[in-house]
Design a protein around this nucleic acid. Structure first.
Lengths: 210, 210
DNA sequence: TGTGACATCCCCTAAAACGGGGAGTCCGCA
DNA sequence: TGCGGACTCCCCGTTTTAGGGGATGTCACA
């Protein structure tokens, strides 16, 4: 069974180009190509393709919006963004909206086809330029964990429960220790994390954790 | 000029295998291979390789720790993790520690070499299995912001300052409003976000934000 | 054998936050 | 023109935290 694909791209030239690339692959069948998100949204559910190739910049409804809508209709729909934009903002928005892959338009045809196969197989795919942005995002989050890392196991627990909204007494009950002990931990946590209070610790913790 | 690579992998068989793969590439030179993070940490600075291939599971110092240390010594050091583990926790930790690539050991040799080239060129590289985990991470972040979204601008501000560790009085001063008003916002925020207190709100907020 | 990290508990005082009200002003939308 | 939302402030009494001490015991590592 061939993997079915639909293309959504407003530029006719580029659209044809993508369709042509797909046509070269014996294991892939291009069902249709649309020029707008609105049209795609109307017709894709009936076609039920395995994978959608979506331009991020579309007239009218944006590609990101379209992704979100498609995902709403069919949470399992696999979508690959194809775009010239490499700005972090758009990448993350698209990923959050539900895209499984993200390619830059300059990617070689072979990578496009590989991506379709990867995504079809339940994987994900990114151009190395895109992967770089994603990695950078994590690096920014990086230098911090040093501080959260050297919390003792018990301190971690307490911080976790704190973030979950429990008050000292409840934390004490759950860990079967006294409120005073919880207090001591919080004091130590704040010291170790170089923050002024548990609020900041919780914020930092979440930030570092994921 | 050949791209220089160092391998850090405790299993002698796998280590040899990686070195062999690298040897097949005319544009890559493997300078050395180490069996432990400690040894790598001692000798890598002198070798100054372009890229380090690092096993994530090492006896003694973990690969993640080793990455963090190498990055501390040389922030520009490019590192690719090579591992059998695909758990989200480890992936993110490694990326945060400073890894630029993340491959599973089952990756084909050609991908290993491509990754070295990608990373050398300032890009990044992930196996599609790893990319998938990363993508899933973003998908989880996606649907959530619904709750944080319908906070009023002022409420957002307050929540932000709260997360930064300011107490009500300080927040009031900064926004030029009274403590009581801040209190009112916090009450409303907690209601809108369906949480019991500001701690939980801060935790949820960070989680949804990024 | 001592030093240090960890886990546990205690005291006191003062500061901060909570809970649950009420109550004005705008402003826009119907 | 009335309704709702956002923004602002206030009161009361109670609970929770903060701040800054001190204390004990275990366990590991040197």
């Amino acid at each position: 069974m061939k993997k079915s694909v639909v293309v959504v791209e407003d530029d006719p030239g580029l659209r044809e180009q993508l369709v042509e690339i797909l046509r070269t692959a014996p294991d892939i069948k291009c069902l249709a190509a649309f020029g707008s998100g609105e049209e795609a949204l109307k017709k894709i559910p009936a076609l039920n393709p395995d994978v959608v190739l979506m331009d991020i910049r579309l007239p009218g409804m944006s590609g990101i919006q379209c992704v979100a809508e498609l995902k709403k209709l069919n949470a399992g729909q696999q979508i690959i963004m194809v775009t010239v934009y490499e700005d972090t903002e758009r990448i993350f928005k698209a990923l959050k909206a539900g895209a499984s892959g993200y390619l830059v338009k300059s990617s070689p045809p072979s990578q496009l086809l590989d991506s379709v196969r990867d995504v079809f197989a339940g994987g994900a795919s990114m151009s190395s330029q895109i992967a770089r942005k994603v990695v950078q995002h994590f690096h920014l989050l990086g230098p911090a964990p040093l501080e959260a890392q050297n919390l003792s196991p018990r301190e971690h627990q307490v911080l976790g429960l704190l973030a979950a909204g429990f008050i000292y007494k409840e934390i004490g009950d759950q860990l079967d220790i006294g409120v005073e002990t919880v207090r001591t931990y919080v004091k130590n946590i704040c010291q170790k994390m170089h923050v002024r209070n548990r609020l900041e610790a919780v914020a930092k913790h979440r930030f570092e954790a994921q």
